[in-house]
Structure formats: C-alpha cells, structure tokens
Amino acid sequence: MNIFDVSFFAENFVALCRGIPLTLQLTLLSVTSGAVFAIVLASFRLSGNQVLDGLARGYIFVFRGTPLLVQLYIIYYGLSQFPELRKSFAWPFLREAYWCASLALCLNTAAYSAEIIRGGVIAVPLGQIEAAKAYGMGGLTLLRRIIAPQAFRLMLPAYSNELILVVKSTALASTITMMEVTGIAAKLISATYRPVEIFIAAGAIYLLLNFSITRLLRLLEYRLSRDRRPHQAATGEHA
C-alpha cells in the first residue's frame, strides 16, 4: 500500500467539497449574529456603567476561558436535562444540531469579537473625538461620523484572525453529527483508514477558505484606508 494514492485523493476531495456549503453556512450565521451580540457586549464594556461592564466582563471571561466543545455540549446535550425547556417554544430549534452549533459558535465568537470591537473603539485618537465635540457633534452623530468608521478600520486585522478561528471552529459541529467538511472527513477516514489523503484534501479546503477570507478582509482594509495611504513616491523604500 503506497502512502499517497492520487486517484483516491481526487475522489475524496470531491466528496469533501460537498461539506463546504454547510461549513460556510455555519460560519456566516454565527459570524453575523455573533457580531451583533458583540456590539452589544462592547457597548456594555464601554458604557461606564459598572453593572453593565461587570456583566459583559463576566460573560467574556466565561466564554473565553472554557473550551468551545464544553459550550457546544452544554447547549446540545445539556439543555435536554430541563423538562420545562423541552416543552418550550425554543425546543424545535434547540433539538437541532444545526441551530445548537450555530448558537454555540455565535455566543463564543461574540465574546472574542466584543474585545476586538472595544479595542478598535479605544484606539480612535482622542483628539478626533474632542474636535468632533468642539464642532458640536454628540451622541449618535459622533458615533456614526467619527468613531464607528475609524474603529471599524482599526479592528479589521484582529477581526480577520477571529474569522479564521470561527471557520476552524465550525469543525466542532462534526462532533454533534453535522456533516460539514470535518464531519465528512471523519466519516471517510474511519471508513477507509487512509487518513493521509483525506487529511490533506480537507486541510487544503480549510486553507483555501481561510486564505480567501484573509484576502477579502485585507482588500477591504486597503480600500477603507485610502486617506491614510502615503503618496506613492514617499513609500518606495520602506514599504
């Protein structure tokens, strides 16, 4: 038996590609809902209100300090322990592995993203905010015109790391029966006992996904920082 069989590799690569839509769905669903929740958490942290700040801190501490697998199992297996919940309106969702995985990923990424958003907001230079206030801007106008656009740009590099983590984390959904890329890979490996080809094929898919995401975000960052780009002549040497 040779170590690497090309036709076996190609065959399984195609099979693994069928998992991509589910991997992407889980990623998109949890990233968008997680971002909304993260904005709420970040605004709690920045509110200056000790109770709200403490709540958000506690949440972030717990969700960053425990393995995602624990969070996933508490939601998928753990919640069934409560008969009240099993009779409630939420049960049709909490019974489904798909929604449980999305919920766990959303809650988890929200904790990490909240700190990234907070970092971006803090990094907006104070002078800018003072100038805006001197112009008479306040509240929402200040947020919309001055803080949000700059904070968004400043947090993009850290956020692209977080997106990669989410793509990688969707693999855990395979432990609760979801047939995304890793789920299919695990099934194929245990059926064929040829882990090398399948690992390389699945790994290549994840690398490709992550590479496209980082490229897209870098492009976005580049477009958003047009005003900060030094003139072409000035860059040259140091770039």
Binding site: A171, T175, A185, A186, V196, Y206
Partner: peptide, 25 residues
Amino acid sequence: TTTLRGIPDLLVIYLFYFGGSTVIT
C-alpha cells in the same frame, strides 16, 4: 506555521490518531 494555524485542530487529531493506528496495525 501557516498550515497548522489554518487547519482545524480536530482534523490534526484525527490524522495523528488514525494515522498512528494504521501504522501500528
């Protein structure tokens, strides 16, 4: 560093476990 940081850890664990088992078997 790029590869191992871009691939789910779960896959790496499967590779080592099943790869190791295949060799040992």
